[in-house]
Design a protein around this nucleic acid. Structure first.
Lengths: 114, 114
DNA sequence: GTTGACCTTTCCATCGGTGTGAGGCCTTAA
DNA sequence: TTAAGGCCTCACACCGATGGAAAGGTCAAC
């Protein structure tokens, strides 16, 4: 399918689809026109990319995560390293959450004092 | 105290202290020189700002949060609104965490299948 | 009076995910 | 043949927190 259709089917702008491609997140073939031709899988891939971005991962991390998420080459040590990366991300998030919740109770305290 | 001292005492660069002021997070008086003069409270305020930033809040949200965090004017409806903002932030974070954890179990599934 | 430390403002840069627009090619239908 | 609409690349702009440089004012100490 062409980029417009993929855009419509995923709700992601063509601009971003090209960007994801440039970041190595999305494979695409070119017709003799130079037009991009995506296969069906692209829809799934784009959805995964969006989900991971929404989860706060960078495209760089996603590039590492994706092949594993797609079930390709689930090799041992390689995925273990990946696992570390993800755990690092999770830890960072947990820390942020903690900070936030601590502030929340502080604020709750101020509110209660009223 | 002058900006250099506040910077030393908080570990925050003068550049950022000026930025926080520009964002309306930090009050400061000027001497006849044009030099900024901070009072003692500024140290506490800066620490609060740093904590909230680290917790992932934007300066815009922090501007709304701060007066309440400092115990000033803890008025009802006003702080209720604030509460909504914070809950919104927390909800967004929880959602991101959820996404991330879902991806994590997906990945874990792939790993287990090996 | 000069040196050096400190302050001022203003402007430019960064990074990553996006938006937007210009200028141009391709294809199809009127 | 032309108009419309889809596609291409390239390039500039934004946001938000932060760093940094440049050019200049101020003050204290020697």
């Amino acid at each position: 399918m062409l980029i417009g259709e993929l855009s419509r089917r995923t709700g992601v702008s063509p601009r971003l689809l090209r960007y994801y491609e440039a970041q190595g997140l999305l494979e695409v073939k070119r017709g003799p026109n130079g037009y991009r031709h995506y296969d069906e899988d692209a829809v799934v891939t784009v959805r995964q990319v969006r989900a991971l971005l929404k989860a706060g991962l960078s495209t760089e991390v996603i590039r590492a995560v994706l092949p594993c998420a797609r079930g390709e080459r689930p090799e041992f040590d390689w995925c273990a390293e990946l696992w570390d990366i993800l755990n690092g991300e999770l830890a960072a998030m947990d820390e942020r959450i903690d900070d936030l919740q601590r502030m929340r109770s502080t604020l709750a305290g101020y509110l209660a004092k009223t």
